[in-house]
Design a protein around this nucleic acid. Structure first.
Lengths: 155, 155
DNA sequence: GTCGCTGCAAAGTCTTTGCAGAGAG
DNA sequence: CTCTCTGCAAAGACTTTGCAGCGAC
C-alpha cells in the first residue's frame, strides 16, 4: 500500500467510476481483468512496462488468469482514453503510468532505470507560450531528463 | 541539398573529421557504408527512422549496397558516441537525428507526424536548476510537445 | 596480411491479431 | 441471449546476431 494513503484511497473510487463511465459510453464491458489491471497500476508508484505489470498481476492475483495480450489491450484502451500515459525510453520499450495525477516531468537514471518525477510551473508556462508562437495546438507534452541519480552517483 | 547551405557545407567536413577521429580512437574503420550513412543523415533535415534512412541511401547511392543491419549498427555506434540522438515516440519506433546541432526541443504533430524544432533558453536553465535540487547528474534531456501543427489545423 | 566490417538470413524482442470458448449486461 | 472479452498461440513489426567472405589499414 501507499504512503500517500488518504488521498489515494479516495481517488481510486473516482478512478474506477471514470473507467466504468468510459466503458459504458463505448459499449464496452467492465471485467475482472480490466479492474485488476487498473488497480495494480494504481497501487504502483512506478512506471511499469506491460511485462512488469503482468508479472505484478500474476503475483497479487494468482487465482485470476490474465494474459499478457489482455494487458496490452487494456493499456492501449486506457492510453487512448487518456487514463494512462506512456513513456518510451531507449529501446527498452514503453512504460506506463496513471495519467490522473497532476502533470509532471521525468528524470530518468540511465544507470538503474529509476524514474523520478518533478513539477515545474515555469516550464509548463513557457511551453504554452511557445506553442502559441508557432500556431501549434498542444494536446500533450512530456519532458525527460536523462542522467545519473544521486543514489547511483554514490556507488 | 540544403537551404542552409553555407553553414552546413562547412560543418560537414568537421563532422566527418570528428567521425574519423572517433573511429581511429577505437580501432574502428572508416568505410564507405559508414560515410554514406553519416552523409545522408546530414543532408536530411528530417528525423529519420532506420528504415527511412536505409531507403534514402538506396535511392541516392544505388550503386553501393548497404544492408539494413549496417544502418542499425552504425546508428548504434553514432548514438553511443553522442554523434546522433534518438527520439522514440509512440509505438512507431525510434527516429534519429544528428546531435551536432544546438540543443533543441520538439513539437510533434500527431496528425501528420511532422516534427518541428524549437529552442528555449529559459527551459534549459530551469532544467539545470531542477537537477541540481535533486542531486541528479544530467547527461541529456529531451522535451516533446504533442499536438496538431498549424498546417493540419487548417485541413 | 590482419582484423574489423558487411550483407544476408536466421534468431530475438516486443506487440498485435485471429479464434473459439467464457462471461458481462 | 447477445455481443464483447479473454487466453492462447500464431503472426507481425522491428532489431540484433552469427557467419563467411570482403575490404580498410
Amino acid at each position: 500500500m501507499n504512503k500517500d494513503f488518504s488521498t489515494k484511497t479516495q481517488k481510486y473510487d473516482e478512478l474506477i467510476e471514470d473507467f466504468k463511465t468510459l466503458l459504458k459510453k463505448n459499449g464496452l464491458k467492465f471485467t475482472m481483468q480490466r479492474e485488476v489491471i487498473l488497480k495494480v497500476l494504481y497501487d504502483s508508484d512506478e512506471h511499469l512496462t506491460p511485462e512488469a505489470l503482468h508479472r505484478l498481476i500474476q503475483e497479487r492475483y494468482a487465482d485470476l488468469k490474465v494474459g499478457i495480450a489482455t494487458v496490452y489491450r487494456t493499456l492501449s484502451l486506457l492510453e487512448n482514453s487518456d487514463m494512462v500515459t506512456s513513456l518510451s525510453f531507449g529501446s527498452q520499450g514503453k512504460k506506463y503510468e496513471l495519467g490522473a495525477k497532476e502533470h509532471h516531468d521525468h528524470m530518468i537514471c540511465i544507470e538503474c532505470g529509476d524514474i523520478q518525477e518533478f513539477v515545474c510551473e515555469e516550464i509548463e508556462k513557457r511551453q504554452e507560450e511557445i506553442t502559441k508562437e508557432y500556431g501549434f495546438l498542444m494536446k500533450d507534452h512530456s519532458m525527460q531528463i536523462y542522467g545519473i541519480c544521486s543514489k547511483c552517483q554514490k556507488s
